[in-house]
């Protein structure tokens, strides 16, 4: 039988104070993952004495995109990302990822911080943010620390957040100059779809070459990682020298290098390769290279 005391924090100070004072606290945000666990009376609740609702903490909400830097508050919902003119204009791959999550009802409640902190291997928020080389700000009463998002997850559903910390916001440098992006997702259906594979390609381009490419995927590996070998293949390369199929193969090999040969590899290897191939083709087309 699950038993806990529900607490509500109304400010960041109050939230940090509770985390500092009490033990065995589970943070509750939009609840779209946690309420499923609660319904199933999941074992994880046996270790929880307090469930701390943070949805009233306004300091954790909001999107700020400047010319150089951007930040997204942890309590920003996926619906807010989908509907944000600034996100759609400057970082459309984040809007694309957010719109692919759940359903209208889920997106109205589910938060980007919750998606990251829950750290499912299939979480759709990781690949766009890893492609941005985003950092997460983890705050406790004693102060804050910044961690590169790719170092945030230790294992599926396991992050480096300490018991007295809360994920406050996601921060990143805005892409520079001319840039293009692509977000793709394979699921078994359109709505309420759990990713089989998702992929983000973000590329800054200059004078007919890729200046800096960032490829990252979700659900392809136990926890989301950047694909450094395919980044290296694309970086500095003239459009004419880029072979999308080769880029796809490099990414697929890199994935299998991380996961090893698994039961799903005969499906995931060509599927990931094709997503990367398509993303690179989209990049070349949008950048105006006609081959």
């Amino acid at each position: 039988m699950v038993e806990y005391q529900l607490l509500r924090a109304h400010s960041l100070d109050e939230l940090l104070e509770i985390l500092d004072e009490k033990e065995n606290v589970q943070i509750l945000a939009g609840g779209t993952d946690l309420m499923v666990d609660l319904h199933h009376q999941d074992d994880k609740f046996e270790k929880i004495d307090y469930l701390l609702d943070i949805t009233a903490v306004n300091e954790l909400k909001g999107i700020k995109l400047g010319n150089k830097k951007g930040e997204i508050g942890a309590l920003t919902t996926h619906a807010e990302l989908v509907n944000s003119p600034a996100i759609n204009e400057k970082l459309p791959f984040i809007a694309a990822a957010a719109s692919s999550i759940g359903s209208t009802q889920i997106r109205n409640r589910a938060t980007i911080g919750g998606n990251l902190a829950n750290a499912a291997a299939c979480a759709d928020s990781f690949s766009p943010l890893i492609a941005l080389e985003a950092e997460v700000v983890l705050r406790s009463k004693g102060g804050a620390r910044k961690i590169l998002l790719e170092d945030f997850v230790e294992w599926p559903y396991q992050t480096i957040i300490k018991a007295d910390e809360v994920l406050e916001k996601i921060i990143f440098a805005m892409p520079e100059g001319e840039y293009y992006s692509s977000y793709q997702k394979i699921g078994r259906r359109k709505a309420l779809s759990i990713s089989r594979i998702s992929l983000t390609l973000l590329a800054e381009v200059e004078n007919g070459s890729v200046k800096k490419a960032q490829v990252a995927s979700g659900a392809a590996t136990p926890f989301p990682v950047p694909f450094r070998k395919v980044n290296k293949y694309l970086n500095g390369k003239n459009f004419a020298a880029i072979n999308p199929v080769e880029a796809g193969n490099i990414a697929a090999d890199e994935m299998v290098g991380i996961t090893g040969e698994r039961w799903s590899t005969p499906y995931k290897r060509p599927a990931l390769g094709k997503l990367v191939e398509r993303a690179v083709e989209d990049l070349l087309e949008e950048a105006g290279y006609n081959g």
Partner: peptide, 25 residues
């Protein structure tokens, strides 16, 4: 568990699954 939408209500102008929200929230 938030899949079927039968419990949908409107909270502060937004459609939400009422099975996924604690009332105190």
């Amino acid at each position: 568990v938030g899949e079927c939408g039968a419990c949908t209500v409107i909270v502060d102008d937004q459609a939400v699954n009422s099975c996924m929200v604690l009332t105190a929230q």
